[in-house]
Simulated assay, not measured.
Amino acid sequence: MPDDVVLAESYGSVLADAAVPCVIVQLHGFANRAAFTHLMETGLAYYEARATPERPWGWIGDVRRMGAIPQAVQEWLIADWNVRAFQAGVREVSIVVAENVLGQLATQQYVRNTTARRDQYEIVTANYPSLEAAKQGARAAFLL
């Protein structure tokens, strides 16, 4: 079954797979602050409308084609978005690993910063080599 398209832009997409269930945010290259936050906010709104404690949803960041992330966006992710995502029920962010060095560095920074904030929220990150592997990981997380 193909993923449902929630949002499709040149810089990225928000998809949903109700069979897992999970929200997938895909970056198609560099996204400036407004574009990046638009993707993440759209995904979080979709997640909040569907996830419940009885039927949790996963969160996948498919960043294979992502470029660098501006420092202000990294700070927003850690201090704002992660807090709200945790309050909405996100407990794991499954990451499809970036193919380029800039994307890898940005992802590593996000993981480090998220781990450092365990006193504010407990979001675990997990890296996967493909979208299908990330979906399997998100599905397995519900069984724990």
Rank of each mutant, 00 (worst) to 15 (best):
G89H: 03
V96S: 05
W57C: 05
P70W: 05
E54I: 03
A68S: 08
V73A: 05
L102E: 11
G89N: 03
V90K: 09
E92C: 06
Q87E: 14
A106G: 15
R64V: 07
F86M: 02
E75R: 02
E54C: 02
Q104K: 14
L77A: 12
R112Q: 14
Q120D: 11
D62F: 04
E99H: 10
E92K: 08
A72P: 06
V96E: 13
Y110R: 13
A98R: 10
N113M: 10
R64F: 01
Y110T: 06
D62S: 07
G61Y: 04
W57Q: 01
V101Q: 09
G58Q: 07
E92F: 05
V111K: 12
I69D: 01
R65W: 03
S94E: 10
I95K: 02
L102W: 07
D119K: 05
W59D: 00
R55C: 02
D119I: 07
Q109K: 12
L102N: 14
N82K: 03
G61H: 04
D80P: 00
L105K: 14
A98L: 08
A116G: 12
E54T: 03
Q120G: 01
T114Q: 08
P70V: 13
L77M: 14
V111F: 04
A116P: 00
V73T: 15
A79C: 09
A72F: 01
V111H: 02
V96Q: 10
V90H: 00
N100S: 13
Q104D: 13
Q108V: 07
W81T: 08
I95P: 04
D80L: 06
Q120V: 12
T107F: 07
R112N: 14
E99D: 15
L77Y: 15
Q108H: 12
R118F: 14
R65H: 15
R65N: 10
V101D: 10
N82M: 15
W76H: 06
E99M: 14
L105D: 08
R55S: 13
Q71T: 03
A79V: 05
P70A: 06
S94Q: 15
F86A: 10
A116Q: 09
I95G: 06
V83P: 05
I78H: 04
R118P: 02
I60P: 01
T115W: 06
V63P: 00
R91N: 12
P70H: 03
W81K: 00
D62C: 06
R118Q: 15
A88K: 08
N82H: 09
R64M: 04
Q120F: 06
A88Q: 04
V90M: 09
Q71V: 03
A88S: 06
I60Q: 01
